[in-house]
């Protein structure tokens, strides 16, 4: 009996890593730009549709589509921050919130007009293959997606730890005034960060189509999911986003298995409330 739970939990870990990659983008953007991207999940769904389109048109495996999509979303994020969001840096939180809520509404409904409300599946040739390891049976697409998510996250960690630009961005996050004083181009670095945040989303979206079918209604759901994850992991903490993603992945998988699948996000919202009340800095975040 316990092997079923183990199977469910492992599925949850794998899904959670992909969720974690998506949430990582949100956490990076908040940690540096201090803007809450309330259209985060909507961007992920755009990436899902893009991966779906690439697959349908060119039979391009979403695992490969990840690279061009991450690049494309980087540009989108860079442009969005430079053109639309930058004037909002330092403005009251509710104004940033409303701006991005507006962006999110537009995305969902343009998708709705363009593709309709029905979900679009990507049928991979290996979609139903699985690996058997002892009592464990794990889906092949999920393993690939989780591995790719880890690779992208690792690349981002490397960028922030090992490159000059990454260090400059971290300096902006630590001390904005100081970063300006020493001559860093804060505006460009913010745009870069938003670009990187959306690159995570682009990559995560490509991976998500191997797990779930693309549908416009997923947008707000994924935004909330990303928020739950980063709040649980600690808003602004990169490692926290991945840990939070895994935690939510496992808890949703188990809740969906033990109760009705439609009730699984109830547990996530209850967890979010508990974390907000008991440990508002998140599990891995630092108290400010």
């Amino acid at each position: 009996m316990w092997s079923i739970y183990l199977n469910v939990a492992v599925q949850g870990v794998l899904t959670g890593l992909v969720y974690g990659l998506m949430a990582l983008g949100l956490s990076v953007i908040f940690g540096v730009v201090r803007v809450v991207n309330f259209a985060h999940g909507e961007f992920a769904v755009v990436a899902m549709y893009a991966a779906y389109a690439l697959f349908t048109a060119f039979r391009l495996d979403p695992l490969w589509a990840l690279l061009p999509l991450a690049a494309l979303f980087f540009l989108v994020g860079y442009g969005l921050q430079a053109a639309l969001i930058n004037p909002f840096v330092g403005r009251p939180e509710h104004e940033q919130f409303i701006l991005l809520v507006g962006v999110g509404i537009i995305i969902v409904n343009v998708l709705l007009i363009a593709f309709g409300p029905d979900s679009r599946p990507v049928n991979l040739s290996y979609g139903f293959d699985s690996y058997e390891i002892g009592p464990l049976i794990v889906d092949k697409p999920r393993v690939f997606a989780a591995a790719a998510a880890i690779a992208v996250a690792a690349a981002l960690f490397w960028f922030f730890r090992r490159t000059r630009t990454g260090a400059a961005i971290r300096a902006c996050a630590d001390n904005l005034v100081g970063a300006g004083v020493v001559g860093l181009n804060v505006k460009r670095l913010f745009a870069l960060t938003f670009g990187l945040g959306l690159a995570c989303v682009g990559a995560a979206g490509a991976l998500l189509v191997t797990i779930a079918d693309a549908a416009p209604s997923l947008g707000p759901a994924y935004t909330l999911l990303a928020f739950i994850i980063v709040i649980i992991g600690g808003l602004g903490s990169m490692a926290g986003a991945l840990v939070g993603g895994v935690l939510i992945g496992v808890s949703e998988a188990l809740a969906g298995f033990l109760f009705a699948p439609s009730m699984k996000s109830m547990f996530s919202f209850a967890l979010l409330i508990a974390v907000l009340v008991l440990r508002p800095q998140g599990l891995l975040g630092q108290r400010t």
Partner: peptide, 24 residues
């Protein structure tokens, strides 16, 4: 014959962005 609720929502989204950018 365009998906009407979607259009209305897109319009609301645009209004939100314009108002909050230009006339907070």
């Amino acid at each position: 014959g365009i998906n009407a609720p979607g259009v209305k929502a897109v319009f609301y989204g645009v209004v939100l962005i314009v108002i909050i950018s230009a006339m907070p």
